[in-house]
Write a protein that binds this DNA or RNA. Structure first.
Length: 730
DNA sequence: TCAATCCGTATC
DNA sequence: ATACGGATTGAC
């Protein structure tokens, strides 16, 4: 185990004079070769001069099929099952054991779960080596500076001042003086099972929880409390959030509670050197709490006690590179294997998270109805809005009366108003083809738009609805006979809807009121001052309101409802509700006889997601969705795989899977629409969907891995993409 | 009969 | 990928 200086890893002897070590002479190596049929360890001989550094987890170079490849040493063994001669471990790249046994096992499990290869998962899990960083830490022992979580806009906090452990004093923390792990006094007391969860963490027990955060919840503080309880048990906590902004909030909350020491943020934006520096600090056990984005789910945290993901419905939690693992699944596998607790939290609830509850694997952490009601804003749905506000000014855009009143009441009370609008480019926006005047709804004067022109994904029944008539972006009414009020033209031209345009329109509806934008073409704001201003934000870019979390926005207008719900996507109800809840959770509780703390959503109250928002019951909605998916046989009620590629190749994979002992239901294959761009000359691609009952998920993945291995073994030219539970299908 | 080449298969 | 073995081919 003695650490060698780096130079010694090179052979001093000539290769012919290398001698095998006496004990544990066999190194089992995961080679970095992404071929399905080579996805297993290969044995090599350890030469004497590498004995010290050839420890499990190190990166090394070996000769494989006639060329030098990278690999990881998985373990040392006494003998090999391989009949032939073993080749030498050529070189140990660095003595740093970057692949811990726990993470190695996790990567194998993830590869198996997703019918992928270990080499691909290892590339997601272990960041590229940065030799200089490794050396600086080796020699100096300097603890990585981690003051700035990149993009940390926390300018309202006193930065640079070391915070004493336990002295939680975040700007938005209402739980001053509460000791970590003391369940009774934290914000977790508002949830009947919250204290028990914290006690389990403090006791080092592997609780599994799906947490439905209360509206207005200081979620980052709650997760920091959970992390602190875990640390008290002498174990580490890993908190994964979808984006930089959420990571920064989590980091700030954890630092406030636990101090700078031992809390580290891992995100892609850090750049290779800083990222590797922090990652190494985690591996070396200098940190007890890791917060980060997607790939942090694999962070080599020592003795993991709590694995948590916030807002697991955000699609950023789905890895876009093969084998396309989802953070929630990675953490479930890891919790299972490492005996760690798992916490899946959010304002919304995904069907997958609910599935964990229904299967009995996880417990529900939800507040009592009365607590929810007391914390929630009052929600009004405006599907078929009847009344309109009188124009306060000539030419000003008008809002439905209820929305206008809710906003005005909030502004008069000195509170900001949040307006959630569709992301720019999400929807075409329409104007008169002749005079360029914006095309407006004849009922409410909202801007007209087209519901998504062509369905990019044609899944299941009901796919292929063409572009419908223009619809009002505010009230959702269809306009079947447009006629420009200015020039009487009946022709329309398309532009692009942006948050900026909506901001402009709203500015006219509320003259003299400051309008801020967040998201879309405008930069995303972390927070806004608690002043009577309009805040126009795209979904996911809603700023929090500075100050006490119990008093957020005075009102919110959710304008993108009909646009969202018109998308041809099976997940659309769940995703729409998630976005609404994310915005509505920032609104103050209903007060002043319902005048303050209002949410107005432009969607039909009869729709289930609208009902769920009104009643603030995402768990009910998730249960409904899960039941519906069960009826039509879609994930997560079943396990599904998509197999995509050239027609013949797909057929081959299906053939092989057909011989496996799995009871597979095959949908398709169907021809996919040609991809836009330079793919015109290529033969059409096909996709088949395979589904099995959930207990057979492993067997399905194994059968698909076998099929891929067969193809790769005979160098089949057309690649086939296999994805398990592809997000756009479920 | 032997060498050059082709093809299939394993890759430690 | 490359490398090796066995079969095949072709020239003597």
């Amino acid at each position: 185990m003695a650490r060698q200086s780096v130079g010694v890893t090179r052979a001093v002897l000539k290769r012919g004079e290398w001698r095998p070590v006496a004990t544990l002479p066999v190194a089992r190596v995961a080679v970095d070769v992404p071929l399905a049929h080579l996805d297993r360890p290969f044995d090599y001989r350890v030469p004497e001069h590498l004995d010290d550094v050839a420890v499990p987890g190190v990166r090394l170079r070996v000769r494989f099929a006639g060329r030098m490849v990278d690999g990881f040493l998985l373990e040392r063994g006494e003998d090999s099952a391989h009949a032939g001669q073993l080749a030498w471990v050529d070189k140990v790249v660095s003595p740093e054991p970057v692949l811990t046994p726990e993470v190695a096992a996790l990567c194998r499990a993830v590869a198996d779960r997703y019918a992928g290869v270990l080499a691909d998962v290892l590339r997601l899990a272990v960041p590229p080596r940065h030799a200089r960083v490794e050396a600086e830490a080796l020699s100096g022992g300097v603890v990585a500076p981690e003051a700035e979580a990149a993009g940390d806009g926390g300018a309202d906090r006193g930065d640079g001042v070391p915070v004493k452990a336990g002295g939680g004093d975040g700007a938005r923390d209402e739980d001053d003086g509460v000791r970590a792990g003391d369940a009774s006094g934290t914000g977790w007391a508002r949830y009947p099972r919250g204290p028990a969860l914290l006690e389990a963490l403090a006791g080092g027990r592997a609780a599994h929880a799906v947490w439905q955060a209360l509206p207005g919840e200081a979620w980052a503080q709650r997760l920091a409390e959970a992390a602190a309880a875990t640390v008290r048990a002498g174990r580490g906590a890993l908190l994964v959030a979808a984006d930089q902004r959420d990571v920064a909030a989590l980091h700030a909350a954890c630092v406030a509670r636990l101090g700078e020491q031992g809390v580290v943020a891992l995100t892609a934006e850090l750049g290779p050197a800083e990222r590797y520096r922090r990652w190494l600090a985690v591996r070396r056990g200098r940190t007890r709490v890791v917060v980060g984005t997607r790939s942090a789910a694999f962070a080599p945290l020592q003795r993991p006690g709590l694995l948590a993901v916030w807002d697991d419905g955000d699609d950023l939690h789905a890895e876009p590179r093969a084998p396309y693992p989802h953070v929630r699944d990675v953490l479930v596998l890891r919790a299972h294997a490492a005996g760690a607790a798992l916490l899946v939290g959010g304002f919304a609830r995904t069907t997958e998270a609910h599935q964990l509850v229904e299967s009995g694997w996880a417990r529900d952490v939800v507040a009592e109805r009365a607590t929810v009601r007391a914390a929630a804003p009052r929600v009004t749905a405006l599907g078929e809005a009847g009344h309109l506000a009188r124009d306060p000014d000539q030419g000003a855009a008008r809002l439905p009366a209820v929305a206008f009143e809710a906003a005005r009441a909030a502004l008069q009370a000195g509170r900001p108003v949040l307006v959630q609008v569709p992301r720019a480019g999400y929807l075409p926006w329409l104007s008169c083809a002749n005079c360029r005047e914006s095309a407006r709804c004849r009922h409410c004067a909202g801007a007209l738009g087209l519901a998504r022109a062509s369905p990019a994904v044609a899944d299941g029944p009901g796919a292929g609805d063409g572009p419908g008539p223009p619809q009002c972006r505010w009230c959702g009414r269809a306009e079947t006979a447009f006629r420009c009020p200015v020039c009487a033209s009946t022709r329309l031209r398309a532009g692009v809807v942006g948050a900026g345009r909506t901001a402009e329109e709203l500015g006219r509806a509320f003259p003299g009121t400051t309008v801020r934008s967040s998201g879309g073409s405008a930069p995303v704001l972390d927070h806004v001052p608690a002043r009577p201003e309009l805040v126009v934000a795209t979904p996911g870019a809603e700023p929090t309101v500075e100050g006490d979390p119990a008093s957020g926005y005075g009102a919110a207008l959710l304008l993108d409802g009909w646009a969202m719900l018109s998308r041809p996507d099976l997940r659309v109800a769940e995703e729409t509700l998630r976005r609404w809840l994310g915005a509505a959770a920032l609104v103050m509780p209903s007060s002043d006889g319902g005048r303050l703390g209002r949410v107005v959503v432009m969607a039909d109250a009869a729709l289930p997601p609208v009902q769920a928002l009104i009643r603030w019951d995402p768990a009910w909605h998730a249960a409904t969705e899960l039941a519906a998916r069960g009826e039509v046989g879609f994930p997560p009620a079943v396990r599904m795989a998509s197999v995509e590629g050239a027609a013949g190749a797909v057929a081959e994979v299906l053939d092989t899977v057909g011989t496996a002992p799995v009871d597979v239901d095959v949908l398709g294959p169907v021809e996919l629409p040609p991809e836009p761009g330079p793919h015109a000359a290529e033969p059409p691609r096909e996709r088949a969907l395979l589904r099995v009952p959930r207990p057979q998920g492993r067997a399905l993945a194994a059968a698909l891995a076998t099929a891929q291995a067969l193809r790769s073994a005979r160098k089949a030219p057309d690649p086939v993409r296999v994805r398990l539970d592809p997000p756009e299908v479920g």
